[in-house]
Amino acid sequence: NITNLCPFDEVFNATRFASVYAWNRKRISNCVADYSVLYNFAPFFAFKCYGVSPTKLNDLCFTNVYADSFVIRGNEVSQIAPGQTGNIADYNYKLPDDFTGCVIAWNSNKLDSKVGGNYNYLYRLFRKSNLKPFERDISTEIYQAGNKPCNGVAGFNCYFPLRSYGFRPTYGVGHQPYRVVVLSFELLHAPATVCGPKKST
């Protein structure tokens, strides 16, 4: 009989979020998941679920829940969905086509923008091939755009693969920082350890 609540607040209220190319993952297990707390949290810009209804989450049990978190621009949030393409979905964070879970995003301009620009948040701009679902690539190898080998030196046709967002408070909404948490639900042939409040007695 599990009684402790799942530590969703640790994920959602973290002081610093990860850059999207180096997205953070927390495994959540052996706890009671009260999703209504999240669902009623006012400032969400997006709360979209795939393969599961957000209002039914509290009735369900899962083997594991993974909480992935990172920061992207407002106009990139739409790429955090199954079957998407674009710089983020291709080179930074890719969801599987059969994704079961929820994508939760909110504007973090007050936290993550600075006058003069916040350059701490990076994304991958160049990559030889697209990421596989949930693949994480933190390499900083110089990207070779031409035929000539770069030998690890940036220059003509040789690019550092990461780019900084440089968030400023005055940017338009599409270019403002958004914090994103992706909850993915794993249902294995194993005992369920993460259940909603109704199922955990």
Rank of each mutant, 00 (worst) to 15 (best):
Y121F: 12
L122K: 15
C6Y: 04
K110A: 12
C31A: 06
Y50L: 01
G116E: 14
I88T: 03
R16W: 08
Q144K: 10
S69Y: 04
L5W: 09
F167M: 03
K128L: 07
T85M: 07
I2C: 13
V173Y: 11
Y165Q: 04
G155V: 06
V20H: 03
N120V: 09
L38T: 02
F167D: 05
L38Q: 02
F70T: 01
I28L: 13
T140Y: 08
P133S: 07
V77Q: 04
Y159T: 15
K132S: 10
V52L: 09
N30F: 03
A33F: 15
R124M: 02
Y171D: 15
I142M: 14
S29N: 11
R124I: 04
A105H: 06
V103F: 00
L162D: 04
G166W: 06
L125H: 15
K198S: 14
I72T: 04
Y93C: 01
N24R: 15
C195W: 08
G51I: 00
Y178A: 09
R124Y: 03
N157F: 08
K56L: 09
Y159G: 11
V11G: 02
F17K: 02
F167Y: 05
K48A: 06
V194N: 11
C31S: 06
P54C: 05
F8I: 07
K94I: 00
P96W: 00
K128H: 13
F156R: 15
L183N: 00
Q84W: 03
V103H: 00
E10T: 09
F8S: 02
Y178P: 01
L5H: 10
N1D: 09
T100R: 13
I138D: 13
A33T: 07
S53H: 11
Y159N: 14
S164T: 12
N107Y: 03
L188I: 12
P161N: 07
D97K: 10
L183M: 06
T15I: 03
S139T: 13
Q144N: 11
N64L: 07
D68K: 01
P197L: 15
V32A: 07
G155C: 07
Y66Q: 06
S78Y: 07
I88C: 01
S164F: 07
F99C: 00
T63N: 12
D68M: 01
L60R: 09
G155R: 09
F17L: 03
G117M: 08
S129C: 09
C31W: 04
L111S: 10
H189V: 09
L60S: 09
S36G: 09
S113R: 03
K110I: 08
I80V: 08
N92K: 02
Q84G: 12
D97T: 09
G117N: 10
L111D: 14
G174M: 13
D97A: 10
D97I: 09
P7D: 14
S129R: 14
P43H: 07
T100V: 15
G117T: 09
P96V: 00
Y66E: 05
F70I: 01
G155W: 07
S184C: 10
G146C: 06
G117P: 08
H175I: 08
S29L: 06
G116R: 10
A81W: 03
R73G: 09
I88H: 01
A33V: 13
N13A: 02
I138W: 07
V153C: 11
T193Y: 10
N30D: 10
R124T: 02
N120L: 09
S29F: 08
K198T: 14
D112G: 01
R127S: 06
